[in-house]
């Protein structure tokens, strides 16, 4: 290129080159967007992720069920009095991820624990009613959760997540 200009004296040629380069850069970046955006969930996946309703009436005390919402397993546990007491007896400050049991359930429905059954370590599915804390045990790397789904032991950094849900009636919840 034979551009004979300096920064002090921008020429029309410089302006043209910068404008063309900028247009190419903007156009290229804009054209990239559809190629990235297409990776996001498509409309049917989003529609299929709509809230679901779960009937709790068949779940007896001490039992738990697993339902799927957005492809994730959701554990719904009908906790016993003992499980609730254990979860509430432990000092919150001593936990790796401090959270009270009351904050993890809906008040008035304390017997129902609803958690996403995905280990916060690396995404395996913990087994219910296993481990030392009357809660969940993850077979992949040995993480143990208590009867409130809180991490107590092992490599997982956080408690089992609580999905968004509401009680539609005493025996029916809507997840999502």
């Amino acid at each position: 290129m034979t551009t004979a200009s300096s920064a002090d004296h921008p020429t029309r040629r410089d302006f043209l080159f910068v404008a063309t380069g900028a247009a190419a850069a903007v156009g290229g970046a804009a054209a990239l967007w559809p190629f990235i955006s297409q990776m996001n969930p498509d409309a049917s996946t989003i529609a299929a992720g709509a809230p679901i309703e779960v009937d709790l009436s068949p779940v007896a005390e001490g039992q738990d069920i697993k339902v799927f919402w957005r492809g994730k397993p959701i554990y719904i546990s009908h906790r016993t009095k003992k499980q609730i007491d254990e979860a509430r007896a432990v000092p919150v400050a001593s936990l790796p991820d401090p959270q009270s049991d009351e904050a993890r359930v809906k008040s008035g429905h304390d017997q129902w624990l609803v958690v996403i059954g995905i280990c916060t370590h690396l995404g395996c599915i913990p087994i219910a009613h296993e481990g030392n804390y009357d809660g969940f045990f993850c077979p992949c790397h040995g993480s143990q959760y208590d009867s409130s789904g809180r991490i107590r032991q092992g490599p997982a950094p956080a408690n089992l997540a609580v999905p968004p849900y509401t009680f539609v009636s005493d025996t029916k919840i809507q997840i999502g």
């Binding site: 559809p34 190629f35 955006s37 297409q38 996001n40 498509d42 409309a43 049917s44």
Partner: peptide, 13 residues
């Protein structure tokens, strides 16, 4: 047909 309808910019691609 569904990728044209549902995927973001599927029709364009």
């Amino acid at each position: 047909e569904l990728l044209v309808r549902d995927v973001n910019y599927g029709w364009l691609l």
